[in-house]
């Protein structure tokens, strides 16, 4: 099956600022992909490149096997909801649906009407007067009713209260179950992502820090706790992502490349998604080691 997103040495520069550097990814279809990273890491840049809003400076990007926004057919295959779920404030909910029907050849009006009813949106209501949660639901409905193969969301739930956030994700997952659509969404809320995503991309400092199937990633990462010095040097075949030391104890967050770490270290503990992501973000935030690039980074407490 054609990957839903494939990039090769992708880069984007805004003037003197390098927003994205050497990103190489291949994401299989039918995944819900979480894109995480600190502000300014390049998340929006990657999503804007994928939706074809901007063009790359270097490298290549393919979405569903074609150049993003190459033609009308390609545009119809991707639904993109920008940050803060923008809608037309002076148009009513009903106007938005009529506009959607006019502009999208594959528009599914039954789906749109049903969804609007289900979430209790009044078709006569001006979109500018909707709550944040209602606006997000409207934007989701519009993006889904065009029946795309890929839905892209930039921080869809960032501005929502916890209840609206849960409702939005429930609707999104219903669409995924019903429409067999791939999803690429960015978020800071790692707990939410752990529930909904089966694929993860961690961006920091304009580069990919980690990418892969969530379950495989969680299986390969461990926390090792030992008396100080016992893990020095660390066992072969593991990559140290983060090391913290107290006077007597060392804690390592590691990636096991052998698949057999548990066999000789039964006390190794698995991490949750949040701990794993934070270890990579912490490593990316460290000053770049120049002289001894091969050495694990250390954080002393």
């Amino acid at each position: 099956m054609t990957p839903v997103l494939r990039t090769d040495a992708l880069g984007k520069r805004y003037g003197r600022r390098q927003a994205l550097t050497n990103v190489t990814l291949s994401i299989p279809a039918r995944r819900v992909v979480g894109l995480v990273g600190p502000n300014g890491a390049g998340k929006s840049t990657l999503l804007n490149l994928a939706s074809g809003m901007i063009a790359p400076t270097t490298g290549t990007i393919e979405v569903l096997g074609s150049r993003p926004a190459a033609d009308a057919t390609q545009l119809a295959r991707v639904g993109f909801v920008a940050q803060d779920t923008p809608v037309y404030p002076n148009l009513s909910v009903g106007d938005h649906l009529r506009l959607g029907a006019r502009l999208n050849p594959g528009w599914d009006d039954r789906l749109a009407q049903q969804r609007i009813n289900q979430v209790g949106l009044d078709p006569t209501q001006k979109a500018g007067r909707l709550s944040g949660g209602q606006r997000a639901q409207l934007a989701l409905t519009l993006a889904a009713a065009k029946r795309p193969e890929l839905l892209i969301f930039d921080e869809p739930v960032a501005a929502l209260d916890p209840l609206a956030r849960r409702t939005f994700l429930q609707s999104l997952m219903e669409f995924v179950a019903e429409l067999e659509v791939s999803v690429l969404l960015s978020s800071h809320l790692l707990g939410d992502l752990e529930r909904v995503c089966d694929h993860l991309i961690v961006l920091a400092a304009s580069r990919t820090q980690l990418a892969g199937d969530v379950e495989e990633l969680l299986t390969a990462h461990y926390r090792l706790v030992a008396a100080r010095g016992d893990l020095d040097p660390p066992p072969p075949g593991i990559e140290v992502i983060q090391a913290t030391h107290t006077a007597r104890q060392t804690t390592l967050i590691v990636r096991d490349t052998t698949g057999t770490l548990r066999d000789h270290m039964p006390a190794a503990e698995h991490l949750d998604l949040e701990e794993m992501v934070l270890a990579y973000l912490g490593r990316a935030a460290e000053p770049v080691p120049t002289a001894n690039a091969g050495q694990p980074l250390e954080v002393s407490r």
């Binding site: 429930q170 609707s171 997952m173 219903e174 939410d192 529930r195 909904v196």
Partner: peptide, 15 residues
Amino acid sequence: TVKEVVARLAINPNT
């Protein structure tokens, strides 16, 4: 059904 579970728990259908 899968759809009922995901609609309630907001989790990935593959789960």
